[in-house]
Every structure is written in C-alpha cells, then in structure tokens.
Amino acid sequence: MPYALCFLLFMIGLYCVVVKKNMVKIVIGILVMEYAVNLFLIMLGYRMGGVAPIVGQSELDPSTGGLLSSFLNASVDPLPQALVLTSIVISLGSLALMISVCVRVYGKYGTFDITEIRRLKG
C-alpha cells in the first residue's frame, strides 16, 4: 500500500512534466518525481520496529565490545540511505541548473511558456 501511494506521487510528477507548459511547473514536476524515488528507496530498506543504523553506546556489548544482536536484527538498511543522501544533494545541484536555464530563457523571451517560446523563436 505505501508503495502504491509512492508510485502515485511519482505519476503526479510525470503528469506535471508531460502536460504542463510552464517551465517552472516542469521543474516542480521533476522535483516531485525525485521525492517519490527517494522515498521509495528508503521504504525498501525499512523494517517494522527497526532502529536507525547508527551505533550508540547502548548498542555495544559491555563485556566483549561487539554489537548486540538486538541491533543486528533490527537495524534498517544503510545502503539505500547512503545512495539517497548523495541523490538529494545532486537534486539540489540539478535544481540550480534547471532554474538558471529558466531564468535565462525568461530574460531572453520574457515568458515561461514553452509554446510561446517556440512561437517567438519562429
């Protein structure tokens, strides 16, 4: 069920990219798709009643210094979290790139409308 809702969020973003003709709206659609994909990847590694993959003093065995089995059997997956961490920062960089394209196009044509831009270009 949460997977389906996440996919619905992705589809809202895709609809926005396909249908809308305002450039900022297209950027917003791409952002929504990024949120949906990040959320889906994190959901794949979630365990019901899990703990965060960060070792604290209470997770260490006081006698041996190893990890307690309560941590090993409950920790969520650290791998998708690491991948999504880089993905979020890259999305900020690509957002800056897309917004600078939009600002530049607005400065040249005076509109965000892509059909209008196509008409003005002749």
């Binding site: 899990g50 965060a52 999504v84 961490l85 900020l92 957002l95 939009c102 600002v103």
Partner: peptide, 30 residues
C-alpha cells in the same frame, strides 16, 4: 522510516532549494 541522516539533509536542502525557487519566481511579473 528511521533515516535521521536523510531527514537532516532533506530539511536543509529543502530550505536552500526553496530560496532558489522563490528567487526565480517572485520577481517575475508573470
């Protein structure tokens, strides 16, 4: 979902991204 790293990064990236997006839209007359 027990991902505090992602939560911190998402919240600060969101603030920066909102500033950039508002910067791009607020001064336009359209």
């Amino acid at each position: 979902l027990r991902a505090p790293d992602i939560a911190i990064t998402q919240i600060v990236v969101e603030v920066m991204g909102l500033i950039i997006l508002i910067r791009a839209t607020i001064s336009r007359d359209l």
